[in-house]
Amino acid sequence: MKLHDERRDYERAQLRRAVLNDDPFKQFADCFSAAKASGLLVDPTAFTLATVSREGQPHQRIVLLKDVDTEGFIFYTNYASQKGQDIEANPQVAMHFAWLPLEQQIRVEGRIEKIDQASSEAYFQSRPRASQLGALASAQSSPIATRDELEARYHQLTEEYEGQPVPMPKTWGGYRIKPSLFEFWQGGKFRLHDRFIYRLQEDTSWLIERLQP
């Protein structure tokens, strides 16, 4: 594959220190609101979650952001999955939002922890019933012979719980990523991209620095 000429310049916007919020959570909220309002993103909540296994092997996958509070970023998954096993071994993780139509990226690094069960239960019960049944049917990341086997399990559970609440799987719930670093990236002309990094300090303030591209 010859990809040398697959390039374009970035001229959509610029990022300047004067317009940045001193609080990275508020800066993220501003960026997210603008990204969503642009209408150019199909899944603005989608981000790449990077984890590292006990053996030191990095893994990445796309998950969906479901909430942001004053402590961090929340998503939901199966705790027994590959990502759950990685997190159990190493709670240091990274997030990456790639908003390519806007020529923007946001990176977040931090420590991850489970949220309380009551909050996980409340969110699970708010999901569409089909999603609840799908979570119950799948032992995420475990091998399975065929799709037919998986769908048969789904239909079996559909019949089993007809007219009843679907129970939250014991291995399912939420995680909160508590950031220690943010990076906001805006593509720039001549590959002179704008990059600003926020680093959490011991006094809980945030140090903001411009990085060279």
Rank of each mutant, 00 (worst) to 15 (best):
S138R: 00
L15T: 04
T48Y: 13
E159W: 03
Q105L: 08
P128H: 00
P165A: 06
D9M: 01
L150K: 09
R16S: 06
P213H: 15
G188M: 07
S142G: 00
D148G: 05
A18L: 07
T51C: 12
L181S: 12
R147V: 06
A50F: 03
L40F: 12
R153V: 03
R107V: 12
L64D: 03
F190D: 15
P128C: 09
E209K: 12
V19K: 05
G187P: 11
R8V: 00
T158P: 00
I87F: 01
L150R: 13
Y79S: 07
I144C: 01
I62K: 01
A139Y: 10
R127A: 04
A118Y: 04
A13K: 14
Q132P: 15
I74P: 07
R107G: 09
V108F: 06
F97C: 07
F196R: 00
E6T: 13
E183V: 10
Q132I: 11
Q92L: 11
Y154K: 03
E160M: 07
F124S: 12
Q125A: 12
F196K: 04
T48P: 05
Q156T: 15
T77G: 11
S53F: 13
P58R: 01
Y175C: 04
F184D: 14
R176Y: 04
L133D: 15
L3M: 08
S126H: 10
L100I: 03
Y198V: 03
G163A: 07
S81V: 05
H193E: 06
K2W: 02
E6F: 13
D194T: 02
E103D: 13
C31F: 12
L49A: 10
E159V: 02
V19R: 07
E183S: 09
E103L: 02
T204W: 02
L64F: 01
L20T: 03
G56Y: 04
L20W: 10
I115Y: 06
Q201V: 02
R7A: 11
W206F: 07
L200Y: 14
R111V: 08
F196E: 05
L133S: 14
S180R: 08
L200H: 10
G187D: 08
V166R: 05
W99F: 02
S38Y: 02
R195N: 15
N78P: 04
K36S: 12
F184V: 08
R199S: 11
L211Q: 15
S205P: 00
K2M: 07
F73K: 00
R176H: 13
T45L: 00
G72V: 00
Q212Y: 01
A80Y: 08
L100N: 10
Q82F: 01
F75K: 08
L20E: 04
R61L: 05
L150Q: 11
I208G: 12
T171G: 00
D116S: 08
A98C: 10
P91S: 15
G84V: 06
T171H: 13
L65Q: 06
